[in-house]
Computed example of a mutant assay.
Amino acid sequence: MNERQISIEPVSGKKGRARFVDLGRDFAAKVPNSVPQLRSEQLELVNPDKNPFFGHARAQLFIAHRAGRPVGRISAHIDELALQMPPEQGFGPGTGMFGYFDAEDEDVAKELLRTAQDWLAKEGMTKAVGPISMSIWEEPGLLVRGQDHAPVIMMGHHPAQYAGWIENAGFTRAKTLYTYDLDVSHDFPPLIQRIVKSGERNSKITVRQVRKDDWDEEVDKILGILNDAWSDNWGFVPLTPEEIDHTGVKLRPIIHEELNMIAEIDGRPVAFMLTFPDVNNVLARTKGKLFPFGWFHMLRWLRNPTGSDMRVPLMGVLREFQNSRLASQLAFMMIDSIRQNASQRFNSQRAEIGWILDDNQGMVAIADAINSSINREYAIYHKPLSAG
């Protein structure tokens, strides 16, 4: 057998998924500044019995081999809800996806991408978009700038050469996602402080902390706003009730009330902002393992993540208020409350906001106004497919 020959193996089942996940972990361990994630969580994401994403999606996982040795992996998947979205928002009829992309060299990358495209074409797809691993709500995009520092919670981290390999395979950039770095130890500029004070004087506006005692109801409110607020965004796919319930359970352990806000107008929830302490801080120390001593470090950190960086992964304002002065005022009020609590209660120095679509003018303007700066850039690519 030619030692340079590459073979692609479709994998499924518990053992196949485990090999797929472990191969990705091996690749991640070789990338500078990468942080090992919990293997159990990674296994759950590709398990149709555990991840409610598969209630409206189907996928095929592939592993590449050369001379009997695994040298790469990729997923090809189809989200039925994404197929129902307007094409101008990035997905729509005929749009399949690829994700979990890792390759030892460009030859392997080429074969993996070809295999994913062939599978999607045989399933009737006419366009491939990715990398999206595996839902748009999980890890979208390929890191193309920012490899020089460690990722924060729920953000992908990829070697620089992957972008060239994907582009050389005929993919072009469809969308750019940014994350912004923010120093939370200092007050916001005077203009922002005046906007916040004005909002605080408005008797109709209330910005309050989430209530963990009513967590299920709070999750319904937050994700209900999210489904409305993001519905016109590129790449939007609505969260299903099952995904909302699953997300609520997953998020509860890392939720601190002081860091998560809901804005109300006359008692009606109209906006929210979520902030998570960066669990990657502790995962880096425990090397992504809970045993034998990782549980102790994790539980202690969950109770009091003092000194942790923060990430603002999600915020939203109901569409009826978007593109108004009120929307930005609510955003500044929530950000300021969270900034003060992160700094004073948890002794945090920095936060990361994102991801933010490059053409989301409202959020980009807010990020600029509070003196944050782009520190990471992710690319999502697309390519037309030949008929299968």
Rank of each mutant, 00 (worst) to 15 (best):
residue 33 N to E: 02
residue 35 V to D: 15
residue 36 P to C: 06
residue 37 Q to K: 12
residue 37 Q to A: 06
residue 37 Q to L: 12
residue 37 Q to W: 10
residue 37 Q to S: 03
residue 39 R to G: 02
residue 40 S to N: 09
residue 40 S to W: 13
residue 41 E to A: 00
residue 41 E to M: 01
residue 41 E to F: 04
residue 42 Q to D: 14
residue 43 L to P: 07
residue 43 L to R: 11
residue 43 L to Y: 10
residue 44 E to I: 00
residue 45 L to V: 15
residue 45 L to A: 12
residue 46 V to Y: 07
residue 46 V to W: 02
residue 47 N to F: 09
residue 49 D to C: 05
residue 50 K to R: 13
residue 50 K to V: 12
residue 51 N to L: 01
residue 52 P to I: 05
residue 52 P to F: 01
residue 53 F to D: 05
residue 53 F to N: 06
residue 53 F to Q: 04
residue 54 F to H: 11
residue 54 F to W: 15
residue 54 F to Y: 15
residue 54 F to P: 06
residue 55 G to D: 13
residue 55 G to M: 13
residue 55 G to C: 05
residue 57 A to H: 10
residue 60 Q to V: 07
residue 60 Q to D: 03
residue 60 Q to N: 04
residue 61 L to C: 00
residue 61 L to I: 00
residue 61 L to V: 01
residue 61 L to G: 00
residue 61 L to T: 00
residue 61 L to N: 03
residue 62 F to K: 08
residue 63 I to W: 11
residue 63 I to T: 10
residue 64 A to F: 05
residue 64 A to I: 06
residue 65 H to M: 09
residue 66 R to W: 06
residue 66 R to C: 08
residue 68 G to K: 07
residue 68 G to R: 09
residue 68 G to E: 04
residue 68 G to M: 06
residue 69 R to S: 03
residue 72 G to R: 11
residue 73 R to M: 07
residue 73 R to G: 00
residue 74 I to H: 05
residue 74 I to V: 15
residue 75 S to K: 08
residue 75 S to Y: 13
residue 76 A to K: 03
residue 76 A to I: 01
residue 79 D to C: 09
residue 80 E to M: 04
residue 82 A to D: 13
residue 83 L to N: 13
residue 83 L to M: 14
residue 84 Q to W: 01
residue 85 M to C: 10
residue 85 M to W: 04
residue 86 P to A: 03
residue 86 P to S: 06
residue 87 P to V: 00
residue 88 E to A: 07
residue 88 E to I: 05
residue 88 E to P: 06
residue 89 Q to P: 11
residue 90 G to P: 09
residue 90 G to K: 04
residue 91 F to W: 15
residue 91 F to G: 10
residue 92 G to T: 03
residue 92 G to A: 03
residue 94 G to K: 02
residue 95 T to R: 08
residue 96 G to E: 12
residue 97 M to Q: 13
residue 98 F to W: 13
residue 98 F to N: 07
residue 99 G to P: 04
residue 99 G to E: 03
residue 100 Y to I: 01
residue 101 F to D: 09
residue 102 D to S: 02
residue 102 D to H: 02
residue 102 D to E: 15
residue 103 A to W: 10
residue 103 A to N: 10
residue 105 D to Y: 06
residue 106 E to T: 09
residue 106 E to W: 07
residue 107 D to H: 11
residue 107 D to E: 13
residue 107 D to M: 10
residue 108 V to E: 03
residue 108 V to L: 02
residue 108 V to N: 06
residue 109 A to Q: 05
residue 109 A to F: 11
residue 109 A to M: 10
residue 110 K to A: 12
residue 110 K to H: 13
residue 110 K to W: 10
residue 110 K to M: 08
residue 111 E to L: 04
residue 111 E to Q: 08
residue 111 E to Y: 02
residue 113 L to P: 07
residue 113 L to M: 14
